[in-house]
Nucleic acid binder design. Structure first.
Lengths: 210, 210
DNA sequence: TTTCTATGTGACTACCCAGTCACTTGCTCT
DNA sequence: AGAGCAAGTGACTGGGTAGTCACATAGAAA
């Protein structure tokens, strides 16, 4: 976490640094992101940055956490309504909110997206603080519940289904951020949400003609 | 492409260089991969490498192409049987072959996997030589045909379905290579193929309980 | 033996990087 | 005014990188 000096900073300066660092980590992987460029763009001395943060990883963790918190804020309303929804409605909401968040906050979504692409699993787990295995367990639980309620077929494999659901979610966001400009994403938000609906239809009913 | 001098090399030396470069690009992104490390491990002088290849990108293209060719060889038998299969059988075969190839050739699959993770679309399209859009068209065609034969529901969106099929394929391979050791992949090949079957079942029939 | 050509070489250039530290600045309290 | 302390600074260290080039070597031809 940042040192106290960082929080003692005047808000404008602090926000500027956060803004610039967000940009850099949204456009580059952890390794490719440059501290030198960040301090130049923020208009501060390199030594100053090391008065605020322990090292590059410390800054990265902080920026990643900020982006995760923004997403949590975005999802909080949804979380409360969660109980009243059927499984497939829940997944649809998750996808829709995920795509909408990425459309409205492409830089923040980009940071998380780049993080997912990191190869070094040790590094990832160190940053997340938890084993990646565990983050799938929430979905597995949801699917099990849906099976018990008769919403989801008992013939499907829970773990495989959880994998499918999470991976498609990240694939959509990755597609948006990798192959569309921020401008295009923003302008085609409705169209993207429509595609999410179409994808959910396939997942609900399958490919097979009846 | 490599210079003539590369092909004039004694086979052993050439293979050694290919082997070492394959390793480096399987473990690192294009930017993180180090020419200096490659020449050290191959036991040649740095100047020599530049007698064989124009630059880093030239070497990368060559290694990537070799890995693609190996995969093509792997798929060639399957390609011939393609006509006799139903759509879902075709997709299953594609996934099974893809997973089996990655299990048997984790380094080669790793190169392609790392390439997919590159952020710079300009770079990717330059290397591929074609627009990424076009590579989806094959699948869209297959799905259209399957709709006409009544194998696939007319209610699903072709483009979205093609996206789903390709992305799940890469997600599975990415999962294998990122979260499993080569050893684990090799030992659990049968289990992985079983998971592919289970995933195909979901895609064929959907989540919904009947 | 001399000459020619192809190939091999590694020190070197010009760059980029994260992180450090001796020093300076500016503010507050006495 | 002076002391003390928190914060700001940028030249510097040590390390990495891709790519170059003047020279060395080796084999073939004359």
């Amino acid at each position: 976490m940042p040192k106290q000096t960082f929080f003692n900073l005047p808000e404008e300066k602090r926000e500027k640094l956060i803004d610039v660092a967000t940009d850099e980590f949204a456009k580059n992987s952890f390794n490719s992101a440059s501290i030198t460029k960040i301090v130049e763009k923020a208009g501060i001395a390199k030594g100053s940055l090391y008065q605020y943060f322990e090292d590059k990883k410390d800054l990265y963790k902080y920026i990643l956490e900020l982006s995760a918190n923004k997403k949590k804020e975005y999802l909080i309303e949804w979380m409360n309504r969660l109980q009243h929804l059927s499984f497939i409605e829940m997944i649809r909401e998750l996808y829709v909110k995920g795509v909408a968040f990425a459309a409205d906050n492409p830089r923040l979504a980009g940071i998380a997206n780049n993080f997912m692409k990191e190869n070094d699993t040790k590094f990832k787990e160190e940053i997340l603080g938890i084993s990646i295995e565990k983050s799938n367990q929430l979905f597995e639980q949801l699917i099990e519940n849906a099976k018990n309620k008769g919403e989801v077929s008992r013939n499907i494999d829970t773990k495989v289904a959880a994998f499918l659901v999470t991976n498609l979610n990240t694939s959509i966001v990755d597609y948006m951020l990798t192959y569309m400009t921020y401008e295009e994403i923003f302008q085609n938000k409705e169209e993207l949400l429509d595609k999410v609906d179409k994808m959910l239809f396939i997942m609900e009913n399958g490919f097979k003609a009846k």
